[in-house]
Design a protein around this nucleic acid. Structure first.
Lengths: 113, 113
DNA sequence: CCGCTATTCAACCAAATGGTTGACTCACGC
DNA sequence: GCGTGAGTCAACCATTTGGTTGAATAGCGG
């Protein structure tokens, strides 16, 4: 079970609260990206984009492999799953049909110790 | 379909990034609360707590009914559903079993125009 | 070795955040 | 009408955030 006060949720949700970082995640969902590639769509300095990448990394949403002088970033979905699980608790409020999700996640937890 | 660049996602995820506000949401998930009641668990001034309540309200997560001198707050799950939908796009990365969620949400959209 | 490329680091800045306190508004009950 | 309770507002403060620029580190290709 995800610890609902997980201090990491702070970092994850904060990371997600910025449209630049959300767009970076979207790019990463299509595959590996270097820092420069992640920065490219935005009209900001590379240094600024690099800070966003670091924010994503601190939240555990991104891991990087340093190969030579380029940093290859890939999505780490784990923390997104935590966020999803946190939200799942409230899913019953907008539609009872999503109770299914909660059950699904619970099964998941029961399955692997 | 939820607009994935919804500027509201900024406010929603930002609201969720604070443990005080998450705890307030948890309290609200049990039923209506006044501002004072929401503030009670925290060792901060009422004014500070009131700001957190306003942050939740700005994110659309909470709506209040002013009855006399007390403000009665209740959870508005709509924006949580938007957040959930945003996350759902990434669900396939942590487990294919959750593809079900995406389909579920899509059905939802197709159902009501 | 040299120059270019990828990236971070450090210093700086303006604006936003999260907290405080004190004054204010307004409703309730005696 | 008066005191008290619920809540907001305004001013203030320290810290964080998100951006800048310029210098530093370090790998690649000639």
């Amino acid at each position: 079970m995800v610890e609902l006060n997980d201090p990491n949720l702070d970092a994850v949700f904060h990371a997600l609260s910025d449209p630049t970082r959300r767009e970076m995640l979207r790019a990463l969902s299509e595959g590996e990206r270097t820092v420069t590639e992640l920065a490219e769509p935005f009209s900001m300095s590379l240094a600024a984009a690099s800070k966003h990448v670091k924010a994503l990394e601190n939240a555990g949403l991104l891991c990087r492999e340093i190969r030579g002088r380029t940093h290859i970033c890939r999505l780490d979905p784990g923390p997104l799953a935590s966020a999803q699980q946190w939200l799942a608790v409230y899913a019953r409020f907008w539609t009872p049909r999503l109770d299914a999700l909660e059950r699904l996640l619970r099964e998941e937890d029961d399955a692997k110790p």
